[in-house]
Design a protein around this nucleic acid. Sequence first.
DNA 1: AGCGATTGGGCTATATTCTGGACCATTCCC
DNA 2: GGGAATGGTCCAGAATATAGCCCAATCGCT
Lengths: 245, 245
Amino acid sequence: MGTDSGNVVEIDQTNVRAIPGYQAVVDYLRREITLGRIRPGDRLPAERKLAAQLGVARETLRQALRILEGSGQVVIHRGAAGGPVIQEALIDPQMIKLDMAGRAESILDLAEFRSITESAAARMSAERRSDDDLARMHEAQAELLAASTKHDSRLADTTFHLAIAASAGNSMLLQSIEDARVKMFAPVDLMSFEFVKDSSYEAHEEILAAIARHDADAAGEAMRAHLATTKLEFERLIGDAAPTA
Amino acid sequence: MGTDSGNVVEIDQTNVRAIPGYQAVVDYLRREITLGRIRPGDRLPAERKLAAQLGVARETLRQALRILEGSGQVVIHRGAAGGPVIQEALIDPQMIKLDMAGRAESILDLAEFRSITESAAARMSAERRSDDDLARMHEAQAELLAASTKHDSRLADTTFHLAIAASAGNSMLLQSIEDARVKMFAPVDLMSFEFVKDSSYEAHEEILAAIARHDADAAGEAMRAHLATTKLEFERLIGDAAPTA
DNA sequence: AGCGATTGGGCTATATTCTGGACCATTCCC
DNA sequence: GGGAATGGTCCAGAATATAGCCCAATCGCT
């Protein structure tokens, strides 16, 4: 036990990545879009103002906007009433399925992680939620019911889950739940998400009822069951794309 | 419902941060030190080699090393058998307590988050652990028992918890548990952690026994109880530092 | 003692990124 | 038509990153 010092250390490069400012801006805006806090049709503040709000130079922001323009997520109009407007990005569904098949293991980890964190959040929400929190969840459910497009459905689904996560009252937990959702849905974004509206509404109703009556056990269990269904849907999609693997 | 488009979006600057390469290197090395994967006395590879392993230029690495030198965490020797050597950084305990009092809410969130993620990891470990995993946990326990300094105790504690997290077999969960641990202990690092050895060994024994016999319920519950104790210790420390608040 | 190898220290030149500012071109609204 | 708001463009300087080169210090071996 005397000479266990002086070891030469092993290095893992994976965690060392410089992030240029324009990339940080792109990441932030894409995250907000995926989480539905910025929606197609929304207008971003004017470049000079937005740059100031983000704390970067205008040219840096413009580099980020050019990238988002290139991916079709933003269109920029000139003139007095102009500015950057968020678009509904369209991606080839087959591309998405192949991408998902390529990171199947990561996606299943993600699904499991969501089950852990979001069922805990549902339990905590049942204990701590305010009436305002509950109202936000009801509103998201109404949006889901009224949703006429796949995109609107996914957005309402996100809003519902994030409302629960936020009402759990733990900022670290909320951040993790957002992260997992971004990692799971960001590449997917728009594709065949009919199942969200078809099957999720009733599952949400059950979760909501448990949270409303402060029943932590039932809320956690209902959330777990709901996410297990979601996981199955993802597995089916991955299987569809890569039957040869 | 027709004109809910065209909203000008609100911006939250907090998530937009460029990370220069040298800062990414500093963050990585400090994380490895906090998690005990790099220990005081260890020697890092020579600058040219380390820079290549990290995928950065030598000058960039040297900037990072100068920062770590400034914080007393690294000393650099020249000559044939030279190189950067990790040091045991010494911080004023009173400074630490004040820092912790300043972010008390964040620390309690962190403690709660650890309870959620690590008890889930303990459950999963009980179901999936290999015999190798179990051996690593036993080894960490032996290190804890043999530890003669506060620093060694904390290191053995970290090794035990990370061994469980890793054996749960979910990379996303492992990453979250590491993150939470870094955020909780990084500023603290070295201070009065006698309690770790005093009270943790027996708690670890209970967790370990449950994992060994594949008892998921008992493992999860034992971990939850253990982390509840840890949370109380932190609350006591915070209270000591800021009795006026 | 001396030599050679290894290592950090220092420097230059170049490229990329970021900033702050200025000025022009376009578009909208009155 | 005119004023105001907005994007488009360009510039000069700072900070950061890279690749390469040589010098200085140290160690270990002969």
